[in-house]
């Protein structure tokens, strides 16, 4: 049985992955975009069967369209609605789920059809385990699976949905942190955690970053408690999410809020003296050792590889 799905889009994060996931149910997949028209146009080129756009007026946040989007969802009654974990997307998803009287599941990695039911795989116990849940009726899922690059064929037309945004929510100001720009696009990033003992020791990290041609980043406590970095250097679920080719985590324990910020890194290397550190379950390569001994050697090795 083909099951139609909606993918709620407020930014491009994981939109391709969600499209891939929804396609597994064999039905028509609609992009439900709340935001600018150019975002909807990009979605239209990704391979969705249809794009609906609640075009945001100046100063109106995506969440202001929650009721309007939910109303349309109730009319069309898709069995599946997916959204990323971006804050506006989760609010829109909640409204659609309520309108559809749908089950709501977070940390969704994949969906599949099983007869009349949808089976959703979600990460449980901090991602140690995948749990398969069978859902009869509609499913709304907060997608946490892998992203996928989409090269759709001909772009579909964007249908602008006329909708009232209400007056309850308005954007007063948005301040992008200029310092984060380099980090967001960097091919290599070195991250620092509380395993670093003193602020003066940051110089060994900076030397490594220089040898690697990398940007530096940190965990939340290194910024908020130690104040060694500005907040634009924080990587994690509440701050910047990065996708470098190589991320080297130094003295980082691997708390979920940090690791979710580096999930899209191609290769994650962890250096930590504690063999039981959580990060060793969440990386590609782990060196169990003293970062103060490893980092200078690694710096020399990167410098040598740059100037053979």
């Amino acid at each position: 049985m083909a099951i139609d799905g909606w993918v709620i889009i407020v930014d491009e994060n994981r939109a391709g992955g969600m499209l891939d996931a929804a396609r597994r149910l064999g039905g028509r997949v609609t992009a439900a975009v709340a935001g600018r028209r150019d975002l909807a146009k990009r979605a239209a080129g990704m391979g969705f069967d249809r794009v609906l756009c609640w075009e945001s007026a100046d100063g109106v946040p995506p969440e202001a369209y929650a009721a309007a989007m939910a109303e349309r969802a109730a009319q069309e009654a898709p069995r599946l609605v997916l959204a990323s974990d971006a804050p506006p997307a989760r609010v829109l998803l909640g409204a659609a789920a309520a309108a559809l009287n749908a089950a709501l599941v977070a940390s969704v990695r994949a969906v599949a059809a099983a007869g009349e039911k949808i089976v959703v795989s979600r990460a449980a116990a901090e991602g140690k385990v995948l749990e398969d849940i069978a859902v009869s009726g509609a499913l709304a899922g907060i997608f946490d699976g892998d992203d996928a690059e989409q090269r759709g064929g001909a772009a579909v037309t964007v249908e602008i949905v006329p909708a009232e945004a209400g007056a309850a929510l308005r954007v007063l100001s948005t301040e992008a942190e200029s310092g984060a720009a380099g980090l967001l696009t960097a091919a290599r990033v070195v991250g620092v955690g509380l395993g670093l003992r003193a602020r003066d020791d940051l110089q060994i990290i900076e030397k490594l970053a220089a040898a690697m041609g990398a940007e530096t980043a940190c965990t939340l406590p290194v910024c908020d408690d130690m104040r060694w970095f500005a907040s634009h250097s924080v990587v994690g679920s509440s701050h910047s999410r990065i996708a470098p080719d190589l991320y080297i985590a130094l003295g980082i324990s691997g708390q979920p809020q940090h690791m979710s910020g580096v999930r899209d890194a191609k290769v994650v290397v962890a250096v930590n003296s504690d063999p039981e550190a959580r990060i060793f379950k969440n990386c590609d390569y782990g060196i169990v050792g003293d970062l103060y001994k490893i980092v200078p050697v690694l710096t020399a090795a990167f410098a040598a590889s740059k100037n053979p």
Binding site: R109, G127, L130, I133, A134, V135, G137, K281, Y285, I287
Partner: peptide
Amino acid sequence: RYQVQTQGVRFPDTPPARII
């Protein structure tokens, strides 16, 4: 109007980290 039922659990098939 929906029902959810756990069907089972499994470990993810991601390869473990190479520890050095």
